[in-house]
Amino acid sequence: MVRYALKRLISLVISLAVASLIIFFVIEIAPGDPASFMLGINAQPDTVAALREELGLDTSKVQRYLNWIGGMLSGDFGTSYTYRTPVAQMITDRLSVSLPLAIYGLLLSTLIGIPAGIFAATRRGRAGDMAVMGATQLGVAVPNFWFAMMLVLLFAIRLGWFGAGGFPGWAKGFWVCIHALTLPAICLALPQAAILARVMRSSLLDVLGEDFMRTARAKGLTLRQAVWRHGVRNAFIPVLTIIGLQIAFLLAGAIIIEQVFYLPGLGRLIFQSINARDLIVVESVVMLLVFSVILVNFLVDLAYAAVDPRLRSRE
């Protein structure tokens, strides 16, 4: 088990290293010099040179890469070209909105998707199954940002149950913030819940066809007991993979949904930075997204081992 975790950890570090190299070099080939860009076209050459030195742009590529990585490891993500404030601080501020939103969305999608999938699988071919499958087809097809606009139209403007957007800030209290994040989280969760329900259903159907389910019935378990005691845990193994993948979709989805609800999250930061060519912010946010995906996959691998004893003993 420890060996398995260690092996996964090494693969995590390698993935991170390769991903960071890719990000660094893509940003490096960006045309234009950040220092000249920041100071405008009328800047004096020596001012530009001074700024270049301040930003560490005068060193070699290898040195800059190592500085960037080293900085990130110690929590220093550099200084924003446009705002002249620490990038780490900006990201933390924005993450305090985006991360809770993504987690809220994940919670909703899991709570809706998994039971719906189990429900459909145990009623295969009957009306309940058809209804769930029809709903998931629709759920997968609806763009979540469009759904967000429709929800705003209905719940915020017509019914007035929620605000049309904006975020009060955590200082105003937990439940106020949760209330403000509810509509966005529902939009985020909807397509993911549909996918989860489909995967859970097909995975459970596969397991229901396994020999050991027949063995369980032969022992005297009812169909229901067999599904819950033997089916669900085995069916959950492929579902874990999908939940892992969803983190990436939810974080990315959050960035888009924030635009609809005017939430001050990572999305706002990143689009402002792209427009301002504040590449150091872009670089850090992309690295953060990739890091979160790789980290979640690592956690999913550990979860596999917890669910499946075959993995625990193999490595």
Binding site: F212, R214, D308
Partner: peptide, 17 residues
């Protein structure tokens, strides 16, 4: 309870987890 059953494929007849 009254009837027990043994199957052909022992590799898949048991729940792996």
């Amino acid at each position: 309870n009254d009837v027990g059953m043994v199957f052909q494929e022992p590799m898949t007849a048991l729940n792996p987890v």
